[in-house]
Nucleic acid binder design. Structure first.
Lengths: 335, 335
DNA sequence: TCTCATGTTGTAAACGGTTTCAACTAGGAG
DNA sequence: CTCCTAGTTGAAACCGTTTACAACATGAGA
């Protein structure tokens, strides 16, 4: 079933069929009708590979996602897709499931589909080198991960600021001894979140090292760390976690040890996951502008695709929003 | 940068380069070395479109996902991807975001990438007609949605059975007046879940119509329906929801009205979402074998792709698992 | 030396579209 | 009637690969 079959059936040349299929003008109405009929009769659908080969583009951007557990990814994807779609571009995804090897092969898979651009969302240990390789072929934007030396486009939210502000809120509520539950070190976002915490906490703890507990970003690790938090000599009154799932884990862990949240210990998360509204106590968190990050990444991408603007050094940083809910709400401000 | 450039640089013909690139044998070692060097020097990467056009296949399957809020989708995707990858197939995704129009265009996008097969996960009102169109081009499998007249492959879990069993558990715990919170009617899974509930509940309620409250599958609708549940004359002691998010909403709604869960009203969800473990009371639910559903769908697909087995009438039904946790645990069995 | 099998390499024809350019048509102006 | 222009249409080149087949070289066996 090729364009030639259609041409034969309609009694015209392949060029004419191509024109009809692509809506080019310069085809007489009745000729066009004949062709359209032939297409319908034969159920013809143009071969994408041939089309792509012969000059065109798929008008498609690929995105590599670590997984779908965090609603963050879903919101980013919606932003990406909405903005790309309005310029006629499509988005296809591949899932690395947080594995470094898988990430590499999935990246190759996407690239081999003839995509026009590539978006990396967060990613793992080796994502930078992948992005560099991909960058040699198509424009690249990374989301929620800093591009080393500004080698490609990046969209982040100001994790340091968000963390700083949330910590400041905790301090203003009277907390003096606080702990941070961190995530894997190779995620720049997690490092920044600790930095923001550190910067605000330090000034209030008279030189005591800010307490850092290392988690793996999942609920279970938060749950497990709860007992470590309690085991400390100094009494911790507030905990900021590098993401919402660990925060939930910490809350459950504390509760299962008989500690009241927020009355005895305040707990805050980071990310603005929707689940934070569905739990009791509802979770205080720093909400990431995920949807807008997707939009911003698309805009960077479209600048490059449509206007040929290079990616080098282009980066956008959005501001997160501190959302106070019940998990930090038990204490009244002492100031 | 084409195969011709490489050929020129290595001083061989394009055929030889192609042989080296594809690892075909019949190339002298030193010739091969020269070609490999030329490829490395030039940074050559074969053009996928040309490759695809000239006989090959991408070895790629596409999947259409409604969204990424439910962890169900993530688990299915992992199953799909794992099983496909072990046969050398890749998976690419597109997200319909629950919108019917978007679903159509995304489907077209995937198809136009030259995929070898198509998987529909759940889907919306118009998914069947889309699947039919897609089925004319490539093998199709639908997950968690029945294929009308067995026109293409389908993998479901036995929603009626799961619902029936959970209801039976509630009955055996002494509940006599129960309600069901349903989801959108066009999702066959939701209809089946109601049927299972109905079948078991009827026999215990002396001919009273089983109570059905219609939700939209989201947390908020569950929350909103909680007051309706309370408004009933008859006192409801147990609620089964068509999915976990609505169940969480119902629980929060009841709690906010001062009703104790599970002491006064037992609430169960459906789906086995991971979030069910992170809330208090932890959520009783019917766990869907999502990962295994992904695996099963891949197997159907690979049967068709590798062995040429037709899809018509092929369907797999897996058994869900009743998971009792705290949200139904307050009552002791009266039997 | 001739023949033949074997191993290596090159030529050219697909694959299914898009697009350039030339050719043809019809109609209006001069 | 001739010339020119605008509107349609078709022939053929091209996109970058794979692969069937032909061609050639080499060494062994007769």
């Amino acid at each position: 079933m090729t364009i030639r079959d259609v041409a034969r059936r309609a009694g015209v040349s392949v060029a004419t069929v191509s024109r009809v299929v692509n809506g080019s003008k310069g085809v007489r109405p009745d000729t066009k009708r004949r062709v359209v009929e032939a297409i319908a009769d034969l159920g013809f659908a143009p071969n994408a590979a041939a089309r792509l080969l012969s000059g065109g583009s798929h008008k498609t951007v690929g995105a590599l996602v670590p997984g779908f557990n965090d609603s963050f990814y879903g919101r980013v994807i919606r932003g990406l897709d909405d903005a790309l779609a309005s310029s006629g571009y499509a988005l296809i995804l591949a899932c690395s499931d947080g594995s470094d090897e898988l990430e590499e092969s999935q990246c190759e898979t996407l690239l081999s589909k003839g995509i026009d651009g590539m978006v990396f969302i967060r990613g793992g240990r080796r994502t930078d080198s992948l992005a560099e390789k991909a960058g040699a072929r198509v424009p690249v934007v990374s989301i929620d991960r800093e591009a080393p030396h500004g080698l490609w486009g990046s969209v982040t939210s100001d994790d340091r600021q968000g963390s700083f502000e949330m910590t400041a809120r905790l301090v203003s509520m009277g907390h003096r001894r606080m702990a941070f539950v961190g995530g894997p070190d190779y995620v720049s976002a997690y490092r920044e979140r600790f930095r923001g915490f550190q910067e605000r906490a330090e000034s209030v703890e008279n030189g005591a090292e800010p307490l850092l507990f290392q988690g793996d970003s999942r609920y279970e690790s938060g749950y497990a760390l709860a007992s470590d938090l309690l085991g400390r000599g100094t009494r911790i009154t507030a905990v900021l976690c590098a993401n919402d799932y660990m925060a939930l884990g910490v809350i459950r862990g504390l509760q299962d040890s008989g500690v009241l949240v927020p009355a005895q210990v305040a707990v805050a998360g980071y990310g603005g996951e929707e689940i934070g509204l569905m739990v009791r106590p509802s979770l205080s968190t720093v909400s990431q502008p995920a949807y807008r990050m997707g939009i911003a990444a698309s805009e960077l991408m479209l600048d490059s695709l449509l206007k040929g603007i290079g990616m080098r050094g282009r980066s956008v940083t959005l501001s997160p929003l501190v959302v106070e809910r019940d998990s930090t709400g038990g204490r009244r401000s002492l100031s």
